[in-house]
Design a binder for these strands. Structure first.
Length: 299
DNA sequence: AGCGGTCAAGTTGAT
DNA sequence: ATCAACTTGACCGCT
């Protein structure tokens, strides 16, 4: 019933994704730069395939793909199209193979773009760059059949209602490839589930309910209530997040994530539901496996 | 081989 | 004013 998801990277398994910096790449001539990027992109496509095989073999039902899977894809100077990369078509073919594998084995794929992607910024250029990056996410999502591109609401800028209105307006302007995958997640600093649910209802965008963020930044409503309300925003299998606090719940900053999930932090209300829960824990695949054991074997 | 400095981007809040 | 934190270390270049 519950599908646990692994986020982006591995703790112990020797599967890793490569990255690149603009500074390093821009010191090279264009041809050499594209050759270098192609090598990294190809490596990452193959690493994704390995990751999916690992998930399939270990009963992990979802995998979050790092936004840097195609590094610097929309960078103003170093950005590129796949057709510019030597062997670009073959790289795309690997991603499509990942998509077929995920579909065949029921492994859900998601994205959670970086903090720089802000749809409600008062600066139109920030929004424009964000949309460009979301288009890139949607392009990869289409290859791999990822159905979620999950974002936080963004900044408050001193006026939450105006910020939410801008968010809503900009969601309405998104291209369909982004919009049909877009989800909103409550954060641990500014936007609670109660803040976001009206936007979700108005736009038809599902809410990714992060119960850890909700506990760090409460809105007076219960886990049970928000669970039910968030479920209603989904026309497909819902996606929620869970973590445990590194410093515990009493005293100190509750936001940093622990290596593992305390099974007591996993909401009782979720246990009988059909949903995906992404496990945000530093021990990565080890944390997913330990939580799975606690939830499914331990009775 | 190991380690230190650095890395595109936005926003917030602690210092 | 500066800076770490965020979903997350990985990379190059020096010794």
């Amino acid at each position: 019933m519950i599908r646990l998801g692994l986020c982006c990277i591995f703790h112990s398994q020797p599967i890793s994704f490569r990255r690149a910096t603009a500074k390093y790449l821009l010191a090279k001539a264009r041809k050499e730069r594209l050759r270098s990027l192609a090598e990294i992109c190809r490596h990452n496509a193959l690493a994704l395939e390995q990751a999916l095989h690992y998930c399939q073999a270990h009963g992990i039902g979802a995998f979050r793909i790092n936004s840097q899977i195609l590094p610097l894809k929309t960078h103003p100077q170093a950005g590129y199209d796949m057709k510019d990369l030597p062997g670009g078509e073959a790289i795309v073919a690997i991603f499509r193979r990942c998509g077929a594998f995920g579909r065949r084995h029921g492994i859900r794929m998601t994205f959670h773009p970086d903090q720089f992607i802000v749809l409600n910024s008062p600066d139109p250029q920030v929004v424009e760059r964000s949309v460009a990056d979301l288009r890139y996410h949607a392009e990869v999502a289409q290859w791999v059949h990822a159905d979620v591109i999950n974002l936080h609401a963004g900044g408050v800028y001193g006026d939450k209602q105006s910020a939410l209105a801008r968010l809503r307006a900009n969601i309405d302007r998104l291209p369909a490839s982004v919009r049909r995958r877009l989800t909103l997640e409550n954060d641990d600093r500014s936007y609670t589930p109660s803040d976001l649910l009206p936007v979700c209802r108005a736009t038809g965008i599902p809410l990714v309910y992060d119960v850890h963020h909700h506990r760090c930044l409460p809105d007076g409503l219960s886990v049970q209530h928000i669970t039910a309300t968030a479920l209603a925003t989904w026309q497909r299998e819902p996606l929620f997040h869970v973590s445990s606090p590194l410093n515990g719940w009493t005293g100190g900053d509750c936001r940093p994530h622990h290596d593992y999930i305390d099974p007591g932090d996993f909401p009782r209300e979720w246990r009988k539901l059909s949903l995906t829960v992404e496990v945000e824990a530093k021990a990565k695949e080890l944390a997913v496996q330990r939580l799975a054991a606690a939830l499914f074997n331990d009775r």
